[in-house]
């Protein structure tokens, strides 16, 4: 059962008014998507579960700061989850990503097969628009932006992964973002 942005927006308004049942409904609807985002960045189930808990506590406390006119509820929720995951990731030592390299390898393999991605055709019009604009980037720009956004990697980590200098990675990211903005606002 799909709920609309309008439904999610209403649920957030009820959360802001202290209605815990609205938070529960919202959780049932969006937690699997946010959990997937967190797992992808954090690799470890325990960290992703703890982060998901913190994300929903943050949604509960800050629901009143969501403004429907300034973006979709999913963009707002996704951002809370991603920023949380980036904070957690930064606070960990590299060795706390147990088996991280293997996991990264496995995830990349999976991503290359697109088996962890839903069919492009089933995406909304806005998502397809982004996908079309991503296709117009150079392969390097596309890869850097995906590794940063979806996997939460830093410029330095991407440089190691791809085997190119950090300066090059930075310029691919910058030019890719510029091209995306132009493509999406055209």
């Amino acid at each position: 059962m799909d709920i609309t942005d309008e439904d999610r927006s209403l649920l957030l308004q009820r959360c802001a008014a202290g209605d815990a049942s609205a938070l529960h409904t919202l959780y049932d609807q969006v937690a699997p998507q946010l959990f997937s985002i967190l797992l992808r960045i954090l690799h470890r189930t325990d960290l992703a579960e703890e982060a998901l808990q913190e994300v929903f506590m943050s949604v509960w406390r800050n629901a009143s700061s969501y403004r429907p006119g300034r973006g979709s509820p999913m963009a707002w929720l996704t951002s809370i989850a991603r920023y949380r995951a980036l904070d957690v990731r930064r606070s960990l030592r590299p060795d706390q990503f147990s088996g991280g390299d293997l996991m990264e390898f496995a995830q990349e393999t999976v991503a290359a097969d697109d088996t962890d991605l839903v069919e492009k055709a089933s995406l909304s019009a806005d998502a397809q628009r982004l996908a079309n604009c991503m296709e117009r980037l150079t392969p390097q720009q596309d890869r850097v932006i995906r590794l940063a956004f979806s996997d939460g990697l830093t410029h330095e980590e991407i440089a190691v992964r791809i085997g190119s200098p950090v300066g090059t990675i930075k310029s691919w990211a910058r030019r890719g973002l510029q091209a995306l903005r132009q493509c999406l606002s055209s």
Partner: peptide, 10 residues
């Protein structure tokens, strides 16, 4: 954020 919309929910 649409980039993460294509991730399968877990």
């Amino acid at each position: 954020f649409w980039m993460s919309a294509s991730l399968k929910p877990i």
